[in-house]
Simulated assay, not measured.
Amino acid sequence: MTAQSGAFDLLGRWLASITALQGASAKTVEAYQRDVSGFLGFLANHFGGDLGKAKLGTVKITDMRAWMAHERRRGVGPRSLARELSAVKSFYRWLGEAEGIEVTAPLATRAPKFKAQLPRPVAKDQAKAMIETVEFQTQDGWTGARDTAVITLLYGCGLRISEALGLTFAAVPLGETLRIRGKGDKDRVVPVLPAARKAVGSYLALCPFSHTAETPLFLGKKGKVLNPRHIQKVMEQTRMQLGMPATATPHAMRHSFATHLLEAGGDLRAIQELLGHASLSTTQAYTALDQAHLMAVYRKAHPKAG
């Protein structure tokens, strides 16, 4: 075993650990592997060879800064670099606990500052117009009904597009609630509005394909699972037809669900549960958005504002 392979063996053990003990999703593990592998590859070149367990414990703040400067030269933005650093710190925390490696410098490294991007929801009337118009972007009646059903679920239940397209026929007929498998393979229960049940029911009545309980609920023209790019495309066409901004995307419908609940007096903790956010801080972005909306209304309406 080479010294360099020792570091990557440790990486493999860490990834196996977070999969077994923390239930990390496959996508999370893949992202961690990519980010930390890039860091280890840099260190191998930076140190000129030896990258075993002992060398990992000699990393200093200057080495961390050299890596971050290298990433910036590669064109990695502040937000992505902060994500990479977070993965490296998680790896080093495990190294400290499992291997007794010195981890002070990596854990003390500051992440680059970046301006948090607030969600950009669509207005209530625009969301309604989107749902009412999207069916006219396809020629087949059943595909139009399908697209309407998908987008109604994004807005009416706050689903991610991957969650909506991950549903199977086992979920129908829809009841008053729906169990969703979200990020990190965590389940949550969301209420289903009558409009969503009606939209899905209309699609089912027209869908030409046979199915089993395991068949994807939303099918493409060839009877395979619907590609999310199709929903993105029909929304692009619809927003152009309606004169809506480019920010009116499938994910914006989920943001709109949360924002409109908050505007109606919804509890932030309850909205967190409905969205499937692991941290309340993620949901709190909607609080800032709501305050910005209220201030904009105030400035426009108050005679002495502005």
Rank of each mutant, 00 (worst) to 15 (best):
Ile151Gln: 01
Phe8Ile: 07
Arg254Lys: 02
Gln126Trp: 10
Gly96Trp: 00
Gln117Asp: 10
Val29His: 06
Ala82Asp: 04
Leu178Thr: 04
Ala66Leu: 14
Pro106Ala: 05
Ile231Thr: 06
Tyr203Arg: 08
Glu135Asp: 15
Lys60Cys: 03
Arg188Ala: 05
Asp9Val: 11
Lys60Asn: 06
Pro250Ser: 08
Thr287Asn: 13
Ile151Tyr: 03
Ala87Leu: 04
His302Gly: 07
Arg229Val: 03
His70Gln: 13
Gly223Thr: 11
Glu135Trp: 15
Leu21Lys: 10
Phe91Met: 04
Leu280Tyr: 03
Glu273His: 11
Arg254Pro: 00
Leu11Gly: 01
His251Ile: 05
Val192Arg: 05
Phe8Tyr: 12
Asn227Arg: 09
His302Gln: 15
Arg197Pro: 01
Arg254Ser: 01
Ala108Trp: 04
Ala199Tyr: 00
Gln284Thr: 06
His293Val: 09
His260Ser: 05
Arg181Cys: 04
Phe47Trp: 13
Val29Ile: 13
Ala26Asn: 05
Leu242Pro: 01
Ala26Arg: 09
Gly243Met: 00
Ala66Met: 11
Gly100Trp: 00
Leu294Lys: 15
Pro250Lys: 06
Phe42Pro: 06
Ala252Pro: 07
Ala127Phe: 11
His260Met: 12
Leu21Gln: 13
Gly12Asn: 11
Leu274Thr: 04
Phe47Arg: 12
Glu99Phe: 01
Thr212Asp: 08
Phe91Glu: 00
Cys157Ser: 15
Pro78Tyr: 13
Glu214Val: 14
Ala285Val: 13
Leu219Pro: 08
Pro106Met: 02
His46Lys: 09
Lys128Gly: 13
Val36His: 02
Leu118Ile: 09
Leu294Tyr: 15
Val297Thr: 14
Ile101Asp: 02
Gln4Asp: 12
Thr168Val: 10
Thr138Ser: 15
Gly306Trp: 14
His230Phe: 07
Lys233His: 12
Pro245Arg: 06
Glu102Met: 03
Arg83Leu: 12
Ala305Val: 03
Thr19Cys: 11
Glu214Tyr: 11
Lys186Val: 00
Lys113Leu: 10
Ala108His: 07
Arg65Gln: 14
Ser90Trp: 04
Val172Pro: 08
Ala87Ser: 15
Leu153Met: 12
Leu167Thr: 08
Phe42Thr: 08
Val36Phe: 06
